[in-house]
Write a protein that binds this DNA or RNA. Structure first.
Lengths: 223, 223
DNA sequence: CTATTATTCTAAGAATCGTTAGAATATAGG
DNA sequence: CCTATATTCTAACGATTCTTAGAATAATAG
């Protein structure tokens, strides 16, 4: 992507546009959302975003050329990660803008993330207070590798796919809180629905792990 | 721009992408930068951004469809404005990301906004302290209509084009500070260069008017 | 009602982007 | 060196976006 000769100002704006353009495709937003959970190989990105491997590679290239992601090689695998936490902050800002400004977005969020049969989502502040009081069972329902790369201290890893066979081991006398990747991730929604159906008192965290970290709350990593 | 049938999640991400796409063109970033100064007619946007009228209208339509700008009609003119202040915040976040991540951007900024013959830019905090101490002459070198729509209290309006004939009226025993639209606006840079050449001690504000307002500092409007 | 001004709408060619197939590269393990 | 695996590169086609010309609309002044 060569930038043509121009006034310094418009040259500058073309570079700004290049960054915005990198996040201007649904597939790349989903990839950035995934990478906000931790580094992933190209293959893992492709599986996580339901893109073909070649297509995921092509999108990752665009993100890398805009310097929004960085890579490291380990053997035959190449791991991509966000170039800096601010990348996720920009993403959340765009998502917030879309949710405030676009009625269609609010509608989808209402229908899929605020189904009225469910309890209100828990705020991060409330969760922290209840964790300190040892008042809730906190479930991280993301895939295990994402849990390993950083999770809320005190959370237990129960990937959504494993949840059915963990139902018997969870205490039923405490409220359960489930969280996943972020406000627009369906894992915690589905986990909460399953738990509610089987008699648990369950709520989900309003946001996800990267938001928790971005707010400065403590994060635990598996060695 | 019809959005096709899809999973709720990818539908959501397509809407997010729509917002990012609206800011993914240099011309539209420049337009948003202009509108951050206050509302402008289509004609004024076209002149301010050196786009043809039809092209400016087409870009404004895209911004309106992404709900980033809003309009009001006054007679035969239609005035566009940012839909909410957060639009400018997202823009600055993208610009900040570009400046931190892209060496080309840092290079342009170094060459055109940090020419080493000039004094260090003034921070907003420093400016406020010196305004309180009545220690500087503050020049708003933007066009008069932008000054009228909101300026730093105590600033006098001296559009860059008028600066040569105001040189005699400015006190030479105090430091002058010039500001304009933002960190990437050249008006204050050029004003500072002219003032320095004619013997003034001059610095420019590191950021512009919308940044000042976004930080919560007071803004004065002409009735 | 007509003329004028400001803006939008429609349409079309040029430019750019997205997707994917096939070839190429890079590393690790025998 | 050979093979397998992970990923990238190249090239092509279709889809989308950009720009602009010409026609249409909307409000105002006479």
């Amino acid at each position: 992507m060569t930038i043509s000769r121009d006034t310094p100002k418009s040259l500058l704006f073309k570079h700004f546009a290049r960054v915005a353009q990198a996040i201007s495709h649904a597939a790349r937003i989903e990839i950035l959302d995934l990478l906000a959970q931790g580094e992933k190989s190209v293959d893992a990105v492709a599986r996580g975003s339901r893109l073909t491997l070649k297509n995921a590679s092509a999108h990752l290239r665009i993100l890398r050329e805009a310097a929004l992601v960085a890579t490291r090689r380990d053997g035959t695998r190449i791991y991509y990660r966000l170039a800096e936490p601010e990348v996720h902050a920009v993403l959340r800002a765009v998502q917030g803008l879309a949710e405030r400004r676009l009625a269609e977005v609010r509608e989808i969020v209402r229908d899929y993330f605020a189904a009225d049969g469910q309890l209100e989502p828990v705020t991060m502040e409330e969760l922290q207070a209840r964790l300190a009081a040892d008042d809730v069972t906190l479930l991280d329902v993301r895939p295990p590798d994402e849990y390993a790369q950083g999770h809320i201290p005190g959370a237990i890893s129960v990937p959504l796919s494993d949840l059915p066979r963990h139902l018997d081991t969870l205490p039923r006398d405490r409220q359960v809180v489930a969280y996943c990747r972020g406000a627009y991730c369906v894992l915690a929604v589905e986990a909460a629905a399953l738990l509610a159906r089987t008699g648990f008192t369950v709520r989900r965290l309003a946001h996800g792990m990267p938001d928790w970290a971005a707010r400065g709350f403590p994060v635990e990593r598996q060695s």
